[in-house]
């Protein structure tokens, strides 16, 4: 193995550019996933089965099919319906939608963990439905699942290189184009791999610490 520091130094600016895109996609994707996940979680608790069943089937379907294929679906099918996004936006939508189905399950677990007495108290005080959800239940439910949510953000970060395959210039895509133009494969790919470990390992330690603090 011949490691060339000059190549590594040349690639560093591109790596950082790519890192910015990677983080951007993960951050935007997480926001979308948190919001959509809440929609699914609340719809799955709807009193009528005409809402629960279709949403349930949709969520199961998204969760049990590969993100990569969903990404290609959005990238190639949406333009035929005259919905045109940039590659990055498509990537964010796909990441956000895919992970929202996992996040919905996390919220559901959190909501189930809120004692029944809280619901009853809200009813006894005749709080309207909206206030019961947003002022009573969700603040308690979300607090206990913060570490789990964080872990899904880390998971999304590690899935984000998939958007390179629809041409978003993230870290992996920059490594691929560096390899294609200069035939230097060793340094770029190794650096991208190490960059992921350097971000996700401290992040997972943080989540573990958070879990202990919020813990039981």
């Amino acid at each position: 193995m011949t490691w060339d520091w000059d190549v590594a130094k040349d690639f560093l600016p591109e790596l950082l550019d790519g890192l910015l895109i990677t983080l951007q996609a993960t951050a935007l994707g997480s926001v979308l996933a948190f919001a959509l996940g809440l929609v699914w979680a609340m719809a799955l608790r709807s009193p009528t089965r005409f809402v629960r069943w279709p949403v349930g089937v949709f969520v199961e379907f998204i969760r049990n099919t590969p993100l990569l294929v969903q990404l290609f679906f959005f990238y190639w099918v949406l333009p035929t319906w005259d919905i045109k996004f940039s590659a990055l936006t498509t990537g964010v939508v796909a990441l956000g939608l895919h992970y929202s189905t996992y996040i919905a399950e996390v919220y559901r677990a959190g909501i189930d963990g809120v004692p029944v007495g809280q619901w009853e108290a809200a009813t006894a005080l005749s709080l309207p439905r909206g206030r019961t959800w947003f002022m009573v239940i969700l603040p308690q439910a979300i607090r206990r699942v913060v570490p789990a949510l964080g872990n899904y953000v880390i998971a999304m970060l590690k899935d984000s290189p998939m958007i390179a395959l629809i041409g978003v210039t993230d870290m992996l895509q920059n490594a691929r184009s560096e390899g294609a133009t200069s035939f230097q494969y060793i340094e770029p790919y190794t650096m991208v791999g190490i960059a992921f470990i350097l971000i996700s390992y401290p992040a997972s330690l943080l989540m573990r610490a958070l879990e202990r603090r919020l813990g039981h």
Binding site: E60, R63, P66, V106, G110, P147, N151, A155, D159, E211
Partner: peptide, 26 residues
């Protein structure tokens, strides 16, 4: 359930931190 196994809040946290997800989760 039909496909996905429902987890309790504690399990969900334990599981996602323990086995966290690469190509998705759990």
């Amino acid at each position: 359930g039909l496909v996905t196994r429902k987890l309790s809040a504690q399990q969900e946290t334990a599981q996602s931190s323990g086995t966290v997800v690469s190509g998705g989760a759990q």
